[in-house]
């Protein structure tokens, strides 16, 4: 209970700093531009809405999580880390702030679109059914960014994981390459952890929950918990050396 209270205190503090320092302007401008360019005028359906916002929120999750982690790498963190908040609370706090910011921005985009240019096939219940896998993908990507941060993993491990991701993601381009037959088994092996994210994206756009669709959010959640747990374990075992300003 005390641990949760401390986590909430640190999350609220970091979120307040993110807002007061003006860093959140980047996200706000991005939201307005995105909405103005893609969602304000054109006639769109729910599938298009979730395809566009699905990609946009992932890009925003990438940026915001990286920005929050760079905040966490400042020497101000030493004072926080020596409190009973501990390393777990510190890293989770940064992660939750990133999620809150991205979710808020998604809510802003959704509110603007529903108010000013509602998708022609919009239904509230279907909207919420799509929101779940979409936001779980945000949580999943943010947890991956946390795991890949300099705060959590040493450079060698980060490079290794990035190489694994590259092999898993760039399969289409490698089909043309003569080395593909060597890479193909690795690609098959490495791409399976991405399945929940891919399936989650598809579920958000199609809203087709038949045929085991309900397991996809569970898989997204499980993978998110796994990644964030790995990040916490690694962070607890590492030397904390924060950057000088």
């Amino acid at each position: 209970m005390f641990a949760l209270r401390r986590l909430w205190t640190f999350t609220r503090f970091t979120l307040t700093e993110y807002i007061r320092s003006g860093r959140i302007i980047v996200e706000l401008v991005a939201v307005i531009l995105f909405w103005g360019l893609f969602l304000r005028e054109w006639t769109i359906g729910s599938e298009q809405f979730f395809s566009l916002t699905g990609i946009f929120t992932l890009l925003m999750a990438l940026y915001t999580t990286a920005a929050l982690l760079s905040l966490g790498e400042r020497p101000q963190g030493y004072v926080m880390l020596t409190r009973p908040l501990g390393r777990t609370g510190y890293l989770l706090g940064l992660y939750f702030v990133a999620l809150i910011v991205v979710l808020t921005m998604f809510a802003v985009v959704s509110a603007l679109t529903i108010t000013f240019n509602r998708p022609f096939d919009f239904l509230w219940n279907e909207f919420f059914m799509s929101v779940v896998p979409l936001l779980l993908n945000v949580a999943l990507l943010s947890s991956l960014i946390v795991l890949l941060s300099a705060l959590v993993l040493p450079n060698v491990m980060r490079l290794f994981l990035l190489a694994v991701l590259a092999i898993a993601l760039y399969s289409q381009a490698w089909h043309l390459s003569p080395v593909y037959r060597f890479i193909e088994p690795l690609q098959s092996l490495f791409s399976w952890p991405l399945y929940p994210a891919m399936a989650g994206f598809k579920l958000a756009t199609s809203r087709d929950w038949t045929g085991g669709g309900y397991y996809i959010p569970l898989a997204q959640l499980a993978l998110t918990v796994l990644l964030i747990s790995l990040a916490l374990i690694s962070f607890k075992r590492r030397d904390v050396i924060l950057r000088n300003q």
Partner: peptide, 27 residues
């Protein structure tokens, strides 16, 4: 309690707000 050498603190907060947060983090 720890007083670091370099006085890097959270500039966006007042001294009192900062102490309230750290106090809460300390229980």
């Amino acid at each position: 309690g720890y007083l670091p050498e370099r006085p890097h603190y959270h500039n966006q907060f007042t001294g009192r707000e900062y102490l309230v947060t750290l106090g809460r983090l300390s229980g």
